[in-house]
């Protein structure tokens, strides 16, 4: 599948924003974080900015941006529509939570928990868009939903730990970032092992129905140059490039942000702050690369008509 930048920026950036929003909404009412108003402003502004930038980026994927509002109408059947509804609905409790906190200094547990719920539901919908697509077996499996949820938790916690450094560092939050990073990496490794060992769902034989006359192979394509199908669904990445990118995501993204979070946990002062501040963007890089690979390594059933032997 073609790794469209607008879609990858959307799911990584807004994922981090929703992770951060969910943590703020759940942890602040229980006094697990700072209740400082300026902290509230900084952290919520960061979360909402990330969410909004992500959502705006996703609009660039559309052929008709001015009609985007129509995407809110088919929530009964469509995960994309549900995602849109959840994203818009989450702004209400999140905005209320922020206004009450920043302007009135009062923390509303109801608004906080509702915003967190909205954030979690939105990330689930994003994952389900991919999870539900049968023609892409590498998306249509049980690894995808935990992958998206954990990635949002990981990046959200890394940013939360980073922002807290300026106010009142909380070792528990840094520990959470550490554990979430490890869990995200483990689930990603599990996903990669799964797609590497997976048996074919469909083959050129089942795609053409020519199942009992011996091997089937493409002799002549219908057209001489690439069409929409090949540009959108026929994207292929060489195995050795994919392996290199996996290593980059694991070391630079997950590994380094884990180590830096560990440093932030074990030290204090300037060193801890620097480590936490570096860990967050590196975690984003890791998620960005794994998300790019999530597209680049996915194979669509239509490629069976264009020479791919199995998907």
């Amino acid at each position: 599948m073609h790794p469209a930048l607008s879609v990858i920026i959307f799911s990584t950036t807004s994922g981090a924003g929703y992770g951060l929003l969910a943590l703020l909404g759940i942890l602040t009412p229980f006094d697990a974080l700072s209740q400082d108003r300026i902290f509230g402003f900084a952290a919520l502004a960061l979360a909402l900015a990330a969410i909004t930038i992500g959502l705006l980026s996703s609009l660039f994927h559309l052929g008709h941006r001015e009609r985007a509002w129509r995407a809110l109408s088919q929530w009964r059947s469509s995960w994309l529509s549900r995602e849109g509804v959840a994203a818009v609905a989450t702004y209400l409790p999140a905005g209320l939570f922020g206004i009450l906190w920043v302007f009135y200094g009062s923390i509303s547990p109801i608004a906080g928990v509702l915003a967190a719920l909205g954030a979690i539901v939105t990330v689930c919908c994003t994952a389900m868009i991919y999870r539900s697509l049968k023609p892409v077996p590498r998306w249509h499996n049980g690894w995808v939903l935990p992958n998206y949820l954990l990635a949002a938790l990981m990046t959200g916690a890394l940013w939360l730990a980073a922002v807290l450094q300026f106010f009142a560092p909380r070792p528990a939050v840094t520990l959470l970032a550490l554990v979430a990073t490890a869990a995200t990496a483990l689930v990603k490794i599990g996903y990669w092992r799964f797609i590497d060992g997976e048996t074919a769902t469909s083959t050129t034989a089942s795609a053409t129905g020519l199942t009992n006359s011996g091997p089937v192979r493409l002799f002549e394509a219908p057209h001489t140059s690439e069409n929409y199908l090949l540009k959108e669904m026929g994207f292929q990445i060489a195995r050795k490039h994919a392996a290199k990118l996996r290593r980059i995501a694991l070391t630079l993204g997950f590994g380094l942000s884990f180590l830096l979070s560990l440093v932030a946990l074990l030290t204090s002062g300037g060193l801890a702050a620097a480590a936490a501040l570096l860990a967050a963007p590196l975690g984003m890089v890791g998620i960005f690369v794994e998300r790019w690979l999530f597209f680049a390594e996915a194979r669509h059933a239509v490629t069976l008509y264009y020479g791919q032997a199995a998907v």
Binding site: L62, H64, R70, L80, P135, L229, H300, Y305
Partner: peptide, 27 residues
Amino acid sequence: DLCIGCKLCSWACPYGAREFDEDVGVM
């Protein structure tokens, strides 16, 4: 007239039956 050109339907078709019209911005 309703299509926003999100292309998701073309991802959901295993048979490659949907093609996006870049000029018009619809499926």
